[in-house]
Structure formats: C-alpha cells, structure tokens
C-alpha cells in the first residue's frame, strides 16, 4: 500500500485504475511509436499511469502524459527534489500529477541498479496491471515480473 503521507501532489488520482509502465534499457527506435500509441489509447478518465523518470523513454512518456492530461504517478528512485519545472506544477494544479520517492533515506545513496529494483518493485506491487515498453529477457525487469500474470509487453527481443 502506498503511504499517502509520502505522496506529493494530487493524491486522489491514486484511486484510479493504476497501470505501471516499465521498460528495460535498450529500447529500439521501432518500439517508441508503439509506446506512444499505447499512451494515446489510454482512458484518461479512469487510468493513472505509474511511471519512473529515470530513462529518456520514461521522461518522454511522462511529458506526453502530462501534455495529454492523463493522470500520472511519478515514482522516483531518488529523494524528492526541491524544485520542479512549471509543467509539473501545471499538472499538479490540474489534479493530474502525484509524485512519490522510493529512496530509502534522503542521504543514502544506493547503487543505481539496487535503487531501480526497489522502484520497480514498488511500481509492480502498487499497480493493477503492468505494461512493459520493451522487455530484455536477460534484464532485471524480466526477473522481477516472474509470477505476475497481469503484464502486457509492447516490445521484446525476438518478437
């Protein structure tokens, strides 16, 4: 369960159907339009996308969702920053953005891979279903999704 005291922004969007977006590193240019079309197909009245903000594809998706007025829970694997761009402020004011950090403590720096795994686990555990933009069969996301049957994969090696 998400501790609402740790959530910044519009907490009411957490009551919507939560769809996590995960993506392995190395997403191919061919997959990006597929991810974009998936984002455009979302029902913004009933869906909240749970997304990270580390990789470029996650940042692109987050900005597209804010632009398209789709509710968005950003999950950061580092402490909450002190400053946000005005587009974040606008999305929060529109009741469409919440932000949460899975950093263990404000002054503890973890290995990037460890902090990403913690973030991914949070997203998987706190979402109703999971969409994977690109899945590397040898990557950490693949192993973290083991045993989950609510997963849709948009792009995968060998497909």
């Amino acid at each position: 369960m998400i501790d609402l005291n740790c959530v910044l922004g519009c907490k009411s969007i957490l009551n919507l159907h939560r769809t996590a977006f995960l993506c392995s590193k190395g997403v191919s240019p061919d997959t990006v339009p597929i991810i974009s079309r998936w984002a455009e197909s979302l029902d913004k009245s009933s869906t909240c996308v749970v997304c990270g903000y580390l990789m470029q594809i996650e940042q692109q998706l987050a900005h597209k969702l804010m632009w398209d007025k789709v509710p968005l829970l950003l999950v950061l694997d580092e402490p909450l920053p002190r400053f946000f761009p005005s587009v974040f402020l606008q999305a929060a004011a529109d009741g469409l953005l919440a932000i949460v950090s899975t950093a263990v403590s404000p002054d503890q720096s973890l290995d990037r891979l460890v902090s990403a795994r913690i973030r991914n686990a949070f997203m998987i555990d706190n979402s109703d279903d999971i969409v994977v933009g690109y899945l590397n069969p040898n990557g950490t996301i693949h192993s973290q999704l083991d045993g989950h049957d609510n997963v849709t994969i948009l792009g995968q090696d060998g497909l």
Partner: peptide, 22 residues
C-alpha cells in the same frame, strides 16, 4: 513568465491542494 522558472516543492503541493493561483 509562468513557464520559465522551476518551482519549489511547496508550490507543487499547494497547486495540487487548490491553495495556489499563479
């Protein structure tokens, strides 16, 4: 210039809580 600067976390919280108009 509402889009130019970055805003502190307090602004984002207040905006989400309908306590702020810029």
């Amino acid at each position: 210039d509402l889009l130019s600067p970055v805003y502190r976390t307090e602004f984002l919280s207040a905006a989400a809580d309908h306590r702020l108009l810029l």
